[in-house]
Design a protein around this nucleic acid. Structure first.
Length: 276
DNA sequence: CTTGGGACCTGGCTGC
DNA sequence: TGCAGCCAGGTCCCAA
């Protein structure tokens, strides 16, 4: 699933290859990919505009275009952005053609991914919380936000208004690294625990970016290569397997209808019983 | 205001 | 072998 490290990787890989290029054509193969407006409106708004910069906000990829317009993409669960793929298969939803001949293909099995073309990016990303790897995200800010929420801390980490870009995989990995059970109430974490969680979130995300993302399910880099961040996973998608730290069996519990994986030995629900 | 649950979508897996 | 049913999950929307 593309989360912050995967989108950051896609941005980094695409940026040197498409910055400065103008759109010469846009073929929308599945109208459902458009978050608003018609196919003609998108084509009219896109063709002739140049890509000035690429940015990422949370799990959104933002292409700042000439004329103060932004093309925003969200890959949701199974989306991928491919640059000049050898084949355009039945899962291709949009093909964007650039002046240098490059074809940027939005591929998506489950048809949840979305594209916006807007004058003001804030209409799409305005509600997002702080960027976890930026300076304005601090342990104090995280503690302040978590203290008001009486939901499981795992659910709080998935709330993009609390912190942007964390999804199911990296929430599980961050909680494991911080030795915090995913069902602990967000508001009941100690200041020390929140600080630990903050450090683990930053560390887990940075490592995943260095690995160019986690290729579970359909995520690949724009050139079709796989990332390797999933090789570092300790609990995510490892239900029933042995914990590499304590040897216990990794369990799965549903939280907000999402599978949450954790090690009951390393992440005790009771805080007064230190882990092995 | 907060919280919880359903909808969206389809490939892959399980079980009969 | 065939098929029904369920699971995966990011975000939005609605109800309590």
């Amino acid at each position: 699933m593309p989360e912050l490290p995967e989108i950051e990787t896609i941005k980094n890989e695409l940026s040197p290859r498409i910055t400065g290029q103008c759109f010469t054509d846009a073929v929308i193969l599945d109208q459902k990919i458009l978050a608003g407006g018609s196919v003609d409106e998108l084509r009219d708004g896109l063709i002739g505009r140049c890509i000035e910069t690429l940015a990422r906000r949370g799990k959104y990829l933002i292409l700042h275009l000439s004329g103060d317009v932004s093309l925003i993409m969200h890959l949701r669960m199974t989306g991928a952005l491919l640059l000049n793929p050898s084949e355009i298969d039945s899962y291709a939803r949009a093909v964007l053609v650039l002046g240098n001949g490059c074809r940027l293909v939005f591929r998506d099995q489950r048809r949840f991914g979305l594209i916006w073309l807007v004058d003001d990016a804030k209409t799409v990303i305005g509600r997002l919380g702080p960027e976890p790897l930026e300076q304005d995200f601090t342990p104090d800010l995280l503690e302040q936000k978590l203290s008001r929420r009486h939901i499981p801390v795992k659910a709080a980490l998935l709330d993009q208004r609390i912190v942007a870009g964390i999804g199911n995989m990296y929430a599980d990995e961050s909680l494991f690294a911080a030795h915090i059970h995913p069902l602990r109430r967000a508001s009941e974490l100690s200041a020390e625990e929140v600080c630990r969680l903050y450090q683990c979130i930053c560390s887990i995300l940075r490592t995943a970016i260095e690995c160019k993302g986690a290729s579970v399910d359909t995520y690949v880099l724009p050139d079709g290569e796989a990332g390797t961040a999933h090789c570092e996973f300790k609990v995510a998608h490892r239900g029933g397997k042995a914990c590499a730290v304590c040897g216990g069996i990794i369990e799965r519990v549903p939280i907000q209808n999402r599978g949450s994986y954790f090690c009951p030995g390393c992440q005790p629900l009771c805080t007064d019983q230190p882990s092995a």
